[in-house]
Nucleic acid binder design. Sequence first.
DNA 1: TATAAATTGAAATTGAATATCAAAAGCATG
DNA 2: CATGCTTTTGATATTCAATTTCAATTTATA
Lengths: 143, 143
Amino acid sequence: MILKKKKIFNDFAASKGLRSTRQRDIILDIFLSTHQHISVEELYLKVKSSNPGIGHATVYRTLKLFAEAGLAREILLHDGQTRYEHVVAGEHHDHLVCTGCNLIIEFEDETIEKLQNEIAARHGFLINSHKMEIYGLCANCRR
Amino acid sequence: MILKKKKIFNDFAASKGLRSTRQRDIILDIFLSTHQHISVEELYLKVKSSNPGIGHATVYRTLKLFAEAGLAREILLHDGQTRYEHVVAGEHHDHLVCTGCNLIIEFEDETIEKLQNEIAARHGFLINSHKMEIYGLCANCRR
DNA sequence: TATAAATTGAAATTGAATATCAAAAGCATG
DNA sequence: CATGCTTTTGATATTCAATTTCAATTTATA
Ligand SMILES: [Mn+2]
Ligand SMILES: [Mn+2]
Ligand SMILES: [Zn+2]
Ligand SMILES: [Zn+2]
């Protein structure tokens, strides 16, 4: 799985004429070792702890490349921090976000996706992406 | 319609013990005269053109009050600018956003709303709000 | 190895949004 | 309509994420 993702990035890099660098390898390794929805700052700190030399700008730049390569998806919730999550080929999901404890639950709903497509078609839109987030309180935070 | 909205704000202000100020009246008038999805900066410039004395901070503060009063809804699209739209009592809609020309089309879909409620309930969530945006190219921008 | 081009990272900059705080304005009271 | 207290305002500073800059370093290719 991890190897496959590395291959995806290498192929992307090759197709774009990007050079292979130690920094990108490290950042990719660490990104792949994390769980979902990590903020750039969190990842930067993780990277820095084992590789103090790697800079802020490089982490930002590299995560954008991962998104472009299809490895990562950028998600903007309501906390002013850009987060990235892992893309699983052929899968899509949206988010339930607890405003109490920041818990994020993923869900997918085919009917909603289909309706979205219909709505876009009805208005002549060619869909590129969509975002859907439901904000509220999770079971724990309700009481 | 406009009078009704002004009353809503006045009642809100009264209930909160807020004072009535020239600035808030002006900003409300101008907000109510605009169309949907205006950014804070856009509104600020509009306000300043007829009332050069009114400051940046006051516009930000006042728009937050409008949202709190239920007159306005804050919307965060993918351009880093907070926008506000008019709230129509009892109505809700989501957005189709053209990444080519920034056209925004509003839509509502009861089935989607119902499914969202079901999903939240299934996970024990108490919904506070949700956002759903579909990004793509509008009919014009497609060609 | 030499050369050209891409990459990096410290530091500066940007841009939206908020905080600060002295001055001004609103409001209740006599 | 003056007094005194509280809220509001707005110029300015500050914050914070993110981007830009650019000299130095690294990579790829010959
Ligand atoms: Mn997710
Ligand atoms: Mn709208
Ligand atoms: Zn929670
Ligand atoms: Zn368009």
